[in-house]
Design a protein around this nucleic acid. Structure first.
Length: 480
RNA sequence: GCCCCCAUCGUCUAGAGGCCUAGGACAACACCCUUUCACGGUGUAGACAGCGAUUCGAAUUCGCUUGGGGGUACCA
């Protein structure tokens, strides 16, 4: 490293053939962290060369999810930048030039093989149980032969000529990686429809966008030698590569829809906080040097070293994510939390309360929850009549009748403006029944809670009584 | 099949030859706190996949085996 060293430029290159996957989000995060730590730039590029599988809706979901996570890019399709366009489908005119350059330099050649011929080659290889490699049938076609084929209307694909050699590169997270390129075979770089293949488009774009470090999932390891070969043929500088372990489902298979949420937007819909999601996913592979796991992105970035990232796969388990989400919910600014929580309460008529009161409701119910979604059930009795079906038995006990009849008498005199007074009176109430009837404090409270909320658990009783208000409390006591 | 990657408590991980009778976090369990559920606190239980080799000494290095993952396309 020295001063003439170019600025770090990393990229995240999702293909819009699905919503933003949590694994892609982690890759984006690690790129973002690396850029932040090194003062580099973080670029978003949309890889939509496969037009059939790409869609505008998915692209939008990727944008929205990345933004929701706070992983904002320095350059990209919407914000622009000096190396655009940042959508591969808008770069289709770029690739053929470079493909032609490779042909001219003898690194690539036209291939007229039909899909049927290629399938047949695959079939034979499979039958003989030998690894498949393109036959190079088209490698030595003469100009006349090629012209004849073209005259027949056959449009060639373009293949990269791979010579056998040992290829070694030093991976940022895995260390030294070795490949025998003799095993690869001549792979396509341009399809016969004129669009580039993935491996070619990536190299051209990364080269033109001056990407210095490619940090991506280890499912790309086997693409790397192919890509390095292209860089070398082009005479371009090969970037550094870093391959991250994959995120697996608890059954150790690829994390997919059948395991539950996989898209960031799904997690958000379930009531996960983006801060928690990000923090959790960072811990899959990275660990803080001070042992403090709850950290925001800036703190993580400051402590982030790509070479210290774990190189093994990790399993996505919900327990810790849920715990972490709960931690964030407990600590989040109440106004911000209320904003996030309100959409989860839309089945209720929230307008019967003021904003201040709504914040208060969230404040007193946030403690035990792990998902924002939990709020719907936990706040039910603030918005609707309680459902007494679960506490019928409890309310019909001698104890409950005792407690409630006295409570009903006394509540009339409670000053609802004064929470301290409510608190003290309830304390006295518990003591009274303990001393006179031998009821346990919690039994006394259970009776009151059941009568007022239809539950045996929930928010602090003082707050609940105060929020409900005197009229509602009396109404509920009289209704049972 | 072939190529590649990976391998510490159930899970995420710390650990870069002696600091390790392997540390932390989540989950579990117990107890404490307490107006409920929780939160919080204090504890308990729980792992170096196996086998060889190197070394005075290995979770840490090397090899093999096993297991898991990825790739093997004119998908990305």
């Amino acid at each position: 490293m020295n001063n003439t060293e170019e600025k770090v430029r990393v990229r995240i290159a999702p293909s819009p053939s699905g919503n933003l996957h949590i694994g892609t989000a982690r890759t984006a995060l690690f790129n973002y962290l690396f850029a932040k730590k090194t003062g580099g730039k973080y670029v978003l590029r949309i890889e939509d060369t496969d037009l059939d599988r790409s869609s505008e809706a998915f692209k939008q979901n990727i944008f929205d999810s990345l933004k929701a996570l706070g992983l904002n890019w320095d350059e990209g399709p919407d914000v622009g930048g000096e190396y655009g366009p940042y959508k591969q489908s808008e770069r289709f005119d770029i690739y053929p030039k470079y493909a032609q350059m490779l042909i001219d330099k003898g690194y690539a050649y036209e291939c007229f093989c039909s899909n049927e011929e290629l399938d047949e080659e695959h079939r034979i290889a499979a039958e003989k149980k030998i690894p498949y490699k393109y036959s190079r049938k088209c490698l030595n076609l003469t100009k006349e032969e090629k012209d004849a084929l073209k005259a027949k209307g056959i449009v060639p694909s373009i293949r990269f000529k791979v010579d056998a050699k040992e290829l070694i590169f030093n991976d940022l997270v895995k260390g030294e990686l070795k490949f025998d390129t003799g095993l690869i075979g001549d792979f396509a770089i341009m399809k016969s429809n004129g669009t580039p293949t993935y491996n070619f488009a990536v190299v051209i774009d990364d080269m033109l966008m001056k990407i210095t470090h490619v940090i991506r999932g280890e499912d790309h390891i086997s693409n790397t030698p192919k890509q390095i070969l292209i860089y070398e043929a082009l005479g371009a500088k090969v970037p550094e590569f870093g391959h991250l372990g994959m995120i697996l489902a608890p059954d150790r298979s690829k994390l997919s829809k059948r395991h539950g949420a996989t898209a960031v937007s799904d997690f958000i819909k379930e009531g996960y906080l983006t801060e928690a999601l990000l923090n959790f996913v960072a811990l899959l592979g990275w660990s803080p040097s001070d042992g403090v796991e709850i950290k925001n992105v800036d703190e993580i970035a400051a402590d982030f070293r790509i070479n210290e990232v774990s190189s093994s796969n990790s399993i996505f388990e919900y327990e810790k994510l849920n715990w972490m989400n709960g931690q964030y919910i407990k600590k989040m600014d109440i106004s911000k939390l209320t904003d996030l929580a309100l959409p989860f309460l839309n089945k209720y008529n929230t307008s019967k309360y003021t904003r201040k009161q709504l914040e208060h409701i969230i404040e007193v119910t946030r403690e035990p929850i792990t998902l924002l979604k939990d709020l719907e059930f936990d706040t039910q009795y603030f918005f609707e009549e309680p459902d007494y079906s679960e506490v019928k038995e409890l309310l019909s006990t001698e104890l409950a009748k005792d407690v409630l009849s006295k409570f009903k008498e006394e509540i009339i005199d409670y000053n609802f403006e004064n929470t301290e007074e409510i608190h003290d009176k309830l304390a006295y109430f518990r003591t009274y029944f303990k001393e006179n009837k031998g009821y346990k404090p919690k039994e006394t409270m259970w009776a009151i809670r059941a009568a007022l909320t239809g539950r045996t658990r929930g928010a602090d009783m003082v707050a609940t009584i105060q929020i409900l208000g005197k009229d509602e409390v009396i109404k509920r006591l009289n209704s049972i």
